[in-house]
Simulated assay, not measured.
Amino acid sequence: MASELEKEDEKRKEFLTNISHDLRTPLISILGYLNMIKEEKYEDEKELESYIDKINNKSLFLKSMLDDFFQYSKLSSRDIQFNKEYIYSRINKAAS
């Protein structure tokens, strides 16, 4: 049993490491583009708009990942109770 607990702990640590990396990557990119805008390191308005579009897209992607992670956290929580009920269908009628 201790071995199983250790394996689960390792899986949890690996999962959190992967999540941290996946969240950090777009955030670093967003911060980089924001810094370039702040320091006016763009040649023209078209390039500035390109940076803003990239920031927007990466922000939406980051939000999506955070939403997914939050949903996963809720689903893996033991606080959720399911109401199970039998659903009667034609398949069940045919089997009878």
Rank of each mutant, 00 (worst) to 15 (best):
Asn56Gly: 00
Ile55Asp: 05
Ser73Cys: 06
Glu10Gln: 09
Arg90Ala: 03
Arg90Gly: 00
Ser76Glu: 07
Ser76Arg: 10
Thr17Lys: 14
His21Val: 13
Ile55Val: 09
Leu60Thr: 05
Asp79Trp: 10
Glu40Val: 08
Asp67Arg: 15
Lys11Thr: 08
Asp67Leu: 15
Leu60Cys: 01
Met1Cys: 06
Glu4Trp: 06
Glu4Asp: 10
Lys46Val: 03
Ile30Trp: 08
Lys13Glu: 13
Met1Phe: 09
Glu85Gln: 15
Lys11His: 10
Ser50Met: 06
His21Ser: 10
Thr17Met: 14
Asn35Leu: 12
Glu10Val: 06
Glu8Thr: 04
Lys11Gly: 06
Asn56Ser: 10
Ser76Gln: 13
Ser29His: 11
Lys63Gln: 15
Leu34Asp: 08
Asn35Asp: 13
Ser96Glu: 11
Tyr42Gln: 05
Ser59Phe: 15
Asp53Thr: 05
Ile28Arg: 14
Leu16Thr: 01
Leu23Gln: 07
Ser20Trp: 08
Asn57Pro: 00
Thr25Gly: 00
Lys93Arg: 13
Glu39Gly: 01
Ser89Gln: 06
Ser73Pro: 03
Glu43Arg: 13
Glu43Met: 07
Phe69Arg: 04
Glu47Asn: 05
Thr17Val: 12
Leu75Ser: 09
Glu40His: 15
Leu48Tyr: 12
Lys74Gly: 01
Met65Phe: 13
Arg90Thr: 02
Asp44Met: 09
Lys41Glu: 14
Leu27Tyr: 15
Ser59Thr: 15
Ser64Arg: 00
Phe61Thr: 06
Asn83His: 11
Tyr88Gln: 10
Pro26His: 01
Ala94His: 10
Phe15Cys: 03
Leu62Val: 05
Glu45Asp: 10
Lys54Gln: 05
Gln81Phe: 04
Ile55Glu: 03
Glu39Gln: 15
Lys11Ala: 14
Asn56Val: 02
Ser96His: 09
Ser64Glu: 12
Glu40Met: 10
Ser50Glu: 14
Arg24Ile: 02
Lys11Gln: 14
Ala95Leu: 12
Tyr33Asn: 12
Thr17His: 12
Asn57Gln: 11
Asp68Pro: 00
Asp68Leu: 02
Tyr51Gly: 00
Ile37Glu: 01
Phe61Val: 03
Ser50Gln: 05
Tyr88Trp: 14
Ile87Ala: 05
Lys41Asn: 13
Phe82Gln: 08
Lys7Val: 00
Asp44Ile: 08
Leu5Thr: 03
Glu14Asn: 03
Leu48His: 11
Asp67Gln: 14
Glu8Tyr: 10
Ile19Trp: 07
Ser20Leu: 04
Leu5Trp: 11
Lys58Pro: 00
Ser77Thr: 03
Asp44Thr: 06
Ser3Gly: 04
Ile55Gln: 10
Ser50Tyr: 04
Glu6Tyr: 11
Tyr42Val: 01
Arg12Asn: 02
Ala2Phe: 07
Ser73Lys: 07
Leu23Asp: 06
Gln71Ile: 11
Glu45Pro: 01
Ser64Tyr: 07
His21Pro: 08
Phe82Thr: 02
Glu14Ile: 02
Phe61Met: 04
Lys38Phe: 10
